[in-house]
Amino acid sequence: MMKIFRTAIHGQPAGPRRPMLAVIIAGFALSIALPYFGLLNKYVIFVLISVGINVILTISLNLVNGFMGEFSVGHAGFMAVGAYGAAVTSVNVIPRWMGAAAFPTAILAGGLAAALVSLFVAIPSFKTRGDYLAIVTLAFAMIVKSALENMDVLGGPRGFMGMQQFTTLPWVFFWMVLSLWAIRNFVYSAYGRGVLSIREDETASELSGVDTRKVKVLTFALSSFFAGVAGGLYAHLLQFINPSMFDVIKSTEMLIMVYLGGVGSIAGSILGASIYTILMEVLRPMGVWRMVLMPAVLILLMIFRPRGIMGLRELRWFVYKAIPHSGAAAKGQNIGNT
């Protein structure tokens, strides 16, 4: 069973990609068919949509925390910008007659807005590291929240509404696959190797010729983009958003999903988001005590399994290899054990 997991980034020669594509197509077909034929009740659909949105949030945060090894603990701030960006685009910019056809534009607008504000965190990250960067990100999230509360055009603390419920299961599935695919591609590229080398040793990375500033800006932008996308989907699911939805507790939830599933792992992000979201639904009868359990799980994870279930390991399906059977590929002079 464990044979299919490998240490991240390398792995057995990647098998044919077909099964992956088949899974995606089947998943997409199901996401359309199941609700259409009334095979799922509204509640189950809602839970599945939440899982999808949470997978996007988790892979997005994992890119920064797990793959790059920087501390972002204020990811809800990016989600908030995306949610408001998408909601405003949808309500005030796009004419209403365009309906759901313009939904991707709204989501894209939210994602881009979030990617833009990520500079506020990326630039301090040039000089600031470790727990100090954690404070920067938290403070950033606080500023976003306070700023939104001060903006009367956006409804201030009362919130913003008027979005139609465009977020459906197929759309969430689409955006989820897109986020996983894009981030996986990014990780398995020269930029991605730069990201990993920053986690391992930033100075050595810089001295090996990696433009760490550029890599950080790109990584924060990509991560925030998808956090913003998730925010946009969220806004068009609930049809109502307010600043306090995007508080420290939201960020904490994202951290739990990352550290549950596994840092630096795409498969782990899917796993963590799914387990957590479903567990929280199953435990709904516990009422407020469920909220007590949530941070307790995080603390226990940190103490007993800080890298999570799949920490730094990857499912073979997600691994990209430039040369299918490297190792035997290169020939040349070998000075071996001279």
Binding site: T7, A8, I9, H10, A190, R193, G194, L196, S197, R199, E200, D201, A204, S205, S208, G209, V210, D211, L312, S326
Partner: peptide, 16 residues
């Protein structure tokens, strides 16, 4: 070195 990365990736990083 980039300890958790493979030997190959250690070299490939430097080809950024």
């Amino acid at each position: 070195l980039f300890k958790e990365l493979t030997v190959l990736d250690n070299v490939r990083v430097a080809k950024y």
